[in-house]
């Protein structure tokens, strides 16, 4: 057993445009673990993952966050990435004129250093594209430019596979996917999971969790994790919605 958490976040508060969206979250993710944070739109799930990645619009006003013992909050976004953190975006940006291949080559070079041998790149790239059923023509297409929602999500997972982070934050990765794409993307996530890696999925539907099974499920309401449990919690949320959690919450705080 490795007693040290991979991702260790403690009492994190996040503001967006001066408004507090995340109001004190504490969470430890150990190597080999997959966690899911579920919650309604606006509950602060995406704000948490964006803030952890270093998004300029999300300010962490309080708390600690570390990856493998390294303080993340001291690092710029690019350094957080090179330290092993990955965010699969809910809305990936289009970068016109920059091909998927050139972008990924630059990202891998940023990890390996400017003089590094890149001779394995093409082979690795083709292999991962095949695994995610991405047509090879995407290599020369401009990144996310004119991609469908499902294509963007596949390419996010392609990037994760290529960059080999240790900790992946997956922000609504299931949205915009049809059932076939959902399966392909889930398989990609499952291939990524290992004894050394961690996954935090942020979603408001259960359906991704049918394919990528988390050990821990947390419910987020109004910027706080109000309930945690095992996979059965996700099923209960799917069946009964979030109202019962809120009722439970008001009973306990009201008492």
């Amino acid at each position: 057993m490795n007693p040290k958490p991979l991702l260790d976040i403690e009492d994190i508060h996040v503001e967006v445009e001066g408004k507090e969206i995340v109001r004190g979250i504490t969470l430890k993710i150990f190597p080999g673990e997959t966690h899911a944070i579920m919650g309604r739109n606006g509950s602060g799930k995406s704000s948490l993952s964006n803030a952890l990645m270093g998004h300029p619009s999300y300010q962490i006003t309080h708390g600690k966050a570390s990856l493998n013992g390294q303080n993340l909050l001291d690092l710029s976004a690019d350094k957080r990435s090179r330290a092993g953190l990955f965010l699969a975006f809910q809305y990936p940006m289009a970068i016109p004129g920059v091909t998927v291949a050139n972008f990924l080559r630059a990202a891998i070079k940023a990890r390996r250093g400017p003089e590094a041998d890149m001779s394995d790149f093409r082979k690795l790239f083709k292999k991962e594209m095949d695994a995610l059923a991405i047509d090879h023509s995407f290599a020369t297409r401009y990144l996310n430019d004119g991609f469908s929602g499902g294509e963007k999500k596949r390419v996010e997972i392609l990037q994760m596979a290529m960059l080999q982070p240790t900790m992946a934050l997956l922000d609504e990765t299931d949205s915009g996917l049809d059932i076939d794409a959902l399966k392909t993307v889930s398989e990609g996530i499952n291939r990524f999971r290992s004894d050394d890696t961690g996954v935090l999925m942020v979603t408001h539907y259960q359906r991704l969790l049918n394919y990528v099974k988390p050990q821990h499920v947390h419910v987020m309401i109004n910027g706080r994790l109000v309930k945690s449990g095992g996979p059965e919690l996700a099923l209960k949320l799917e069946e009964r919605g979030y109202d019962w959690v809120e009722e439970e919450l008001s009973r306990s705080t009201g008492a």
């Binding site: 976004a77 690019d78 970068i95 016109p96 004129g97 050139n102």
Partner: peptide, 29 residues
């Protein structure tokens, strides 16, 4: 667009290289 830049930085590309890539993309047409 700072969001384009952040997207590249979130993949480990340092800020000045991110600008270079975005400008190269702009010039690509």
């Amino acid at each position: 667009d700072p969001m384009e830049r952040f997207y590249l930085e979130a993949r480990g590309i340092d800020p000045s290289e991110a600008v270079r890539i975005i400008v190269a993309g702009f010039a690509e047409s």
